[in-house]
Design a binder for these strands. Sequence first.
DNA 1: AACATCAATAATGTTGACATTAATACGCGA
DNA 2: TCGCGTATTAATGTCAACATTATTGATGTT
Lengths: 242, 242
Amino acid sequence: MSIVDPALAKTGTLADQAYEALASSIISGELPPGMRMLEVELAERFGMSRGPLREAMRRLEERRLVERISQRGVRVVRLTGPKLRGIYQVRESLEGMACRLAAQNMTDTELAELRQMLEAHEAYVRDSDDYSQNRRDWDFHDRIARGSKNEMIVSLLCDDLYQLLKLYRNQHKSKPGRARRALQEHWRIFGALEDRDGELAEMLMRRHIGAALTVFEPDWACDEDEGTVPTDLVPGGLQART
Amino acid sequence: MSIVDPALAKTGTLADQAYEALASSIISGELPPGMRMLEVELAERFGMSRGPLREAMRRLEERRLVERISQRGVRVVRLTGPKLRGIYQVRESLEGMACRLAAQNMTDTELAELRQMLEAHEAYVRDSDDYSQNRRDWDFHDRIARGSKNEMIVSLLCDDLYQLLKLYRNQHKSKPGRARRALQEHWRIFGALEDRDGELAEMLMRRHIGAALTVFEPDWACDEDEGTVPTDLVPGGLQART
DNA sequence: AACATCAATAATGTTGACATTAATACGCGA
DNA sequence: TCGCGTATTAATGTCAACATTATTGATGTT
């Protein structure tokens, strides 16, 4: 998928389109971490002026997908080990609360759908070891976030945190083998939700997320070097220009 | 303080200045909830063009101080009872985690300063019953948030949540009488931090915040009407124009 | 008098040019 | 050859005008 995809991005303002396109390019890794994002370059590529593009950049900045260096432009965020740990601390607390609330606010229908989802995952995990941090895994967490019926929690988790974590996941290989275990934890969380036991649900979710962090821990020894000079990539570096 | 204050707002880009000015005007209540914010009007008042102003509006929107209605402009946020409750749920989880982390990450110096602060508060509360949701109260919570040493938590709490809560506080009278009790809870939290007992610190903070919410509960009976037509105030409605 | 249609108005969305500031390249001297 | 100051380039910051869309008001009909 090229950075400018005519299939998507027909709706909303140009700023919205630019945000969507840039966000997904960053998450997919098409725009690698540390890459300089030039307004003129990107505006030309999207066929829009710099105005809407700047608004999109602001939004990317607020959602932590890019970092702005005062008057010296904007770069794709670099997630180092300590930063990821910080994100996981936020996730643990927010998603714990989401789970507690979901236990009291999810409808019986939503719970039934969630059970169906987990049964499908069950079938999937029989064949594959790739589950943790997978699309299916995210689906589960997404349902629970929305089940909290708390708008702010939903937007913080789905619009901000999950994007950042998917971005990290696409950059770093996670060690496999947790598929079976992760699914089992999902089932236990589901059980607590079904029992409407918010306190237990929160506790289980927090432990589940804590365990998920360990999937990445191995490659931190070589990753922590934040002191190195940022590589000065430029947008044109990937695609051929006309 | 007028909405355009030449004393402040000399630093940074025009968009930054506009954001700061608008944010503080919204929080102080100078721009009342539900008020329509017209780009042309505000741009003229700040003496800038609509470009930077629109970027400031985006930021206000991301931080939930204003609400955008697709192509029909932007209004100052209206905090209804259920929304406030949602915010408090987020606050409880995030600030609980912040407190847990602060217990392990605050330096001894920071703890000593915190104790000094509480002693000053102690003297203050002897004369006044206004403490909860007060500047001093916020100072305490601010210190703990920063004590977590978690950048994301700091920005979520200090840049987003606290602003919203101050805004609400300025609109609704809170029932007094919790000053003594709130300060006592602060001391207990401090004790847990000093003991480096993160688990206890988190628990105490969560209960402290849960109790703080009850300060507002009384006026929810008449406040919940979200169905009413939004009042169509216009920026010029407050100040005289030249 | 009530309602629908259409023109006039006013707002947001977008653009290209200009201003300012940071990065780069060049040339000069030690 | 290295370092420093300056000229040049290239980026971000800002502006005023234009385009598009929503709202308002007028007008005419039933």
